[in-house]
């Protein structure tokens, strides 16, 4: 046990932090992979990512999946209009 504090104003204040819930990429069972040659940069995968784990800076670039945090829901694969996202089982 650490020492009991003597402060009268200890506040439950949290700071915005990426990965506040940890490296949620470890939750993933299936890994979405963007096939760059097929991608038409429509940004649908970026738009619908519930985790904000797909990064896009402009419409000229292929979006990038942040695997540290992608939970592998595969919504991106479902919404891709040109099947440019495939899924791979993690650990295979």
């Amino acid at each position: 046990m650490s020492e009991i504090p003597d402060n009268h104003l200890i506040l439950p204040i949290s700071k915005p932090t990426k990965g506040a819930g940890g490296k949620t990429g470890s939750w993933r069972v299936f890994r979405p992979v963007i096939l760059e040659d097929k991608c038409i940069k429509c940004m649908m995968c970026w738009m619908y990512c519930p985790e904000a784990a797909i990064e896009a800076h402009s419409r000229n670039e292929v979006p990038k999946i942040n695997y540290d945090y992608c939970k592998g829901c595969l919504v991106c694969k479902e919404v891709c209009p040109v099947s440019a996202i495939k899924s791979e089982r993690e650990g295979e």
């Binding site: 915005p16 506040a20 940890g22 949620t24 619908y48 519930p50 784990a53 939970k71 595969l74 919504v75």
Partner: peptide
């Protein structure tokens, strides 16, 4: 921010 504790595929975070 990514790395939150929502379930995969959560509609609410989107």
């Amino acid at each position: 921010l990514p790395g939150n504790t929502a379930c995969p595929g959560c509609g609410s975070t989107l």
